[in-house]
């Protein structure tokens, strides 16, 4: 057990893949900044990779007072054992009270090992973080696919660690702020073990679903690849991005990385329109933060109607063309 009062400040692990810092790190910094301000302590980002000061100092504008930079050519590619050792050393030296990670494949792979090494608690896939009366972190996580929510606390161990789904926290507006990049001496860094024999970046889809103001989502009820184009057209009219449910992706109508829900992305647009989607919790957990939810489903008893603001009972392939043409007309006014 740690002496809780020795630990101070909110840290974010800003993960990079291929030299690019992932958005989830910036999103988390917004939250860390807010938490740090309400306690009057520091917020910091930690970057491990092969990067220069210049490439990481933008994180200051997202809320970091300090950016700890652990840079070495052998850190370019992710290696859980090496990254764990470096974070262990840094945490033991600087003693942050909380350490937040993105819940993407890298953060979700690394954070648990670091937590076990430090013998501390880690909550998974948080959708909300807030301070409780004791000044500790209340970590809200979904269980059972979101049919249930739990508040997790870590009273006697530090740092309090959490992974947070990409998109679950709002991206802060970058601001002109004071801050410093602290280059951490990493010493000798062995090449990754197990050996990395291949690294293949994937093509990314054009639309950034996580940050979109309008999300048009389609489900199995859309029925065909041909009909799917209606969603893309509607998204274009409204300047939004297209997302999908599991079955629609399984049909090949949309790529894997636009899945919304428990095993995919969390979105928080101003407007979400879901068509041909039944509204199972696995999907709904990823759309709950939307300001307005519109559902189009031909089954009046579809579950999604229970969580929507506007529900249209009808055939999506008939409603969507009308919606598209009317919007074109009215938005053109």
């Amino acid at each position: 057990m740690a002496n809780v009062s020795d630990y101070s400040g909110f840290w974010v692990f800003a993960e990079q893949i291929n030299g690019k810092i992932a958005d989830v790190g910036r999103e988390l910094l917004g939250k860390a900044r807010e938490l740090a301000d309400s306690k009057g302590v520091e917020a910091a980002a930690v970057v491990v990779g092969d990067l220069t000061e210049d490439e990481v100092k933008e994180l200051i504008s997202y809320g970091a007072d300090k950016v700890y930079l652990l840079s070495h050519p052998n850190l370019k590619l992710y290696s859980s054992l090496t990254y764990t050792r470096l974070l262990e050393d840094l945490v033991n030296k600087e003693k942050p009270e909380a350490f937040l990670f993105g819940a993407g494949p890298l953060g979700a792979d690394l954070a648990p090992r670091v937590a076990a090494r430090l013998n501390t608690g880690l909550s998974a896939h948080c959708v909300d973080l807030k301070l409780n009366e004791e000044g500790g972190l209340d970590q809200v996580v979904p269980g059972f696919g979101g049919s249930l929510m739990a508040t997790i606390v870590c009273p006697n161990h530090r740092p309090q660690m959490a992974t947070v789904m990409p998109g679950a926290m709002k991206m802060p507006e970058p601001k002109e702020r004071e801050g410093e990049v602290v280059r951490v001496d990493v010493g000798e860094v062995p090449s990754p073990s197990p050996e990395i024999v291949e690294f293949k970046p994937k093509e990314r889809s054009a639309v950034a679903l996580d940050g979109a103001d309008v999300v048009i989502a389609g489900g199995w009820g859309i029925g065909s690849e041909e009909n799917w184009k209606l969603l893309e057209e509607l998204a274009e009219v409204l300047g939004g991005a297209v997302g999908a449910t599991r079955p629609a992706i399984d049909e090949g109508w949309a790529p894997e990385d636009v899945m919304i829900g428990q095993s995919g992305k969390t979105v928080h647009p101003k407007l979400y329109i879901g068509a041909g989607i039944s509204g199972v919790m696995h999907h709904v957990v990823g759309i709950q933060d939307s300001e307005v939810i519109v559902a189009i489903n031909k089954d009046p008893k579809a579950q999604i109607f229970e969580v929507c603001d506007f529900g249209i009972v009808g055939d999506a392939t008939k409603v969507l063309p009308v919606l598209i043409s009317k919007l074109k007309e009215k938005l053109g006014e």
Binding site: T151, V153, D309, G311, K318
Partner: peptide, 24 residues
């Protein structure tokens, strides 16, 4: 277990739920 569950709750649903049916 360093973490403990301090509360369980059902997710709240506060939505307008205006259901429309009829001609498109």
């Amino acid at each position: 277990s360093p973490t403990i569950v301090s509360g369980l709750f059902m997710p709240e649903i506060k939505r307008r739920r205006e259901i429309l049916s009829g001609e498109p």
